[in-house]
Write a protein that binds this DNA or RNA. Structure first.
Lengths: 136, 136
DNA sequence: TGTTCATGTAAGGAAACCTCACTTGCCCTT
DNA sequence: AAGGGCAAGTGAGGTTTCCTTACATGAACA
């Protein structure tokens, strides 16, 4: 839940994603253009990628290496989606992602932090401490 | 171990860190200037922050809010360091961080990914799959 | 009142990113 | 052999984000 929020936080600029995935900027933009990913944007329209985006790009890369074309990859993702069970929920959270991430997520984080003590030691702390839990 | 690598990966530009911590760029740079953090840099000298850096900035913020000044915060960190046990190891890994992160970490990641199959299903996969494990 | 500390703010420049358009290499098909 | 489509490279021109440096401000305090 807040797990999903974390995975969907828009955090990385394209330069970092290039290094993490070893894809070129051209490729990443091309995949976006073909609807394989939908990274968030800053106000200035620069792309911001989440962990999920990076994960997906790595999947795309593998499939490309296996010789699939864009249409094939799209097909694979369409087939994989239902497997995660309860497609509706997945779709819902995808919507949540697109609407929440860009506008309110950082705000949410801010509130939790700038409201000192209010969430300390609680289940809802997204950063500080939770951050440690980002890594098992 | 590779856990520590992940926590120390230089990933975020200052803009993101501002949102995550609700600190101003001025503050973040000032804390760096006073040696409270040592973010990595891109070749073009732009700051890149790791999870550990963000975590530390949040600690700094808390202490600032409690009324500590820079010297006090420095003191707190000096006192906290030995508690993590085996200071030497901590120092070593700090060195590892500074030297590894900037130069070789992404390279390391690249290799593991561009060498398809070699690390699949192994313990050493840092991304794809491991990425999911970033979140417990 | 003057000093120090933490931060704000402004200027000028550089890095990183953006879109658009054209090109290239490869694989097909005719 | 020619033509077409796909995935990606490359270049131009512009915008956004970040950099350092320097000066300003407000609070605390000697």
């Amino acid at each position: 839940m807040s797990n999903e929020i974390r995975r969907n936080m828009a955090l990385f600029p394209i330069g970092i994603v290039m290094k993490l995935t070893d894809l070129t900027a051209r490729q990443i933009r091309y995949y976006e253009q073909n609807d394989l990913i939908q990274p968030a944007r800053t106000e200035g329209k620069q792309r911001l990628f989440s962990f999920n985006d990076v994960d997906r790009l790595l999947e795309i890369k593998e499939l490309i290496e296996k010789g699939l074309n864009i249409a094939g990859i799209k097909q694979v993702f369409d087939l994989k989606a239902p497997i995660t069970m309860e497609t509706e929920i997945t779709e819902t959270s995808e919507k949540t992602r697109k609407e929440l991430t860009d506008k309110e997520l950082h705000q949410l984080l801010k509130q939790q932090i700038t409201n000192p003590g209010a969430f300390r030691h609680g289940e809802n702390v997204l950063l500080r401490g939770e951050l440690s839990r980002f890594f098992h």
